[in-house]
């Protein structure tokens, strides 16, 4: 029998050696349960796990853990995201216990966007611990059954621990080392920032493979389909550490009026197929921002369906 860290669907799929395919769901700006269920329906059967963002871009939304519970009811494997911006170590540990108590089995540890971008820029931030310290803390809770202060936990949480990586952010030469730090801290899987420059990502993965990091951790490459030329430009200029090659923008433009979205999907599908063949890449994380209904189509075109079932 296979030993699992949490036994989440994502962990099982990865351990069985399948190429994983994960999706994302941004909770609504309200207590709109139906909105979550609707997004869940689009994703169901198409992905192995669904990331649920934690006040993404520092905008208040339904809490990640509660949207995770709704997704779980809908039969999905949620990936609970937690950022360091809003909680101190007490709140973090109690939420970690809480999600595990409710059967959530994946967790992604992030620094979080600074609140100055968000809808409450006057807020006081926390940043008691950082994302790497958060990874270590979850691992300690799970593997040693101990709180950060060393005290014993009565029934430790069981979580498959994830972390993020931005291969394109500066200083570039340090990014692979920071990834190594996250893996050393205890990350079981990594989901990268969205990739548009495949050449640079290939170079990055070569370094990852050279350092043997892909053998210590599952690396899922991030993909966000471009819906329009405007979105591509926005990604290229407004999102820190994001690089969108000019030829991609040209391709979207060349598709003609009203056809950029289709071209964007085509590009994403080609990327997924290329990533599938790339050494060290264990899966793809598809962040179809407010485009959940297009996920089934992308999954199908990319040959990601049907999703494997691992018992």
């Amino acid at each position: 029998m296979t030993e699992y860290k949490s036994g989440s669907n994502l962990e099982k799929v990865l351990k069985a050696g399948h190429f994983a395919f994960t999706g994302e769901c941004g909770p609504p700006r309200g207590a709109n349960v139906e909105a979550v269920r609707k997004k869940a329906q689009h994703l169901k059967g198409c992905v192995d796990a669904v990331n649920v963002t934690d006040n993404q871009t520092a905008v208040v939304r339904m809490s990640s853990w509660s949207a995770c519970l709704i997704l779980k009811e809908e039969g999905l494997d949620p990936n609970f995201q937690m950022v360091c911006r809003d909680r101190n170590r007490l709140a973090m540990q109690s939420d970690i216990l809480g999600v595990s108590a409710h059967g959530i089995k994946n967790m992604l540890c992030l620094s979080g966007d600074h609140q100055r971008f968000g809808d409450h820029p006057e807020a006081k931030n926390v940043y008691d611990i950082d994302s790497i310290q958060l990874i270590s803390m979850v691992k300690k809770m799970r593997d040693e059954g101990k709180f950060l202060n060393g005290e014993q936990i009565d029934v430790p949480p069981k979580l498959f621990i994830g972390a993020a990586c931005n291969p394109f952010a500066e200083p570039l030469e340090f990014r692979v080392y920071r990834l190594a730090k996250k893996i050393e801290a205890g990350a079981d899987f990594i989901q990268t920032q969205c990739i548009y420059n495949m050449d640079r990502f290939r170079e990055f993965m070569k370094r990852v493979v050279d350092m043997g990091l892909h053998e210590k951790c599952y690396i899922l490459a991030g993909i966000t389909p471009l819906k329009s030329v405007g979105m591509a430009r926005y990604m290229a200029t407004q999102v820190p550490g994001m690089e969108v090659p000019e030829e991609l923008i040209k391709r979207l433009k060349g598709a003609g009026k009203g056809k950029a979205a289709e071209e964007g999907i085509k590009i994403a599908v080609e990327q997924i197929q290329e990533l599938r063949e790339m050494e060290g890449v264990a899966g793809v994380h598809l962040m179809a921002i407010e485009w959940e209904h297009r996920v089934p189509e992308i999954a199908k075109l990319a040959g990601m369906l049907p999703r494997p079932k691992v018992e």
Partner: peptide, 18 residues
């Protein structure tokens, strides 16, 4: 973000995402 293990993914050409 007072990171002890930085830099975060928002580091942008030597400048902060903020």
């Amino acid at each position: 973000k007072s990171l002890m293990n930085g830099p975060c993914g928002g580091s942008n050409h030597g400048k902060c995402e903020v």
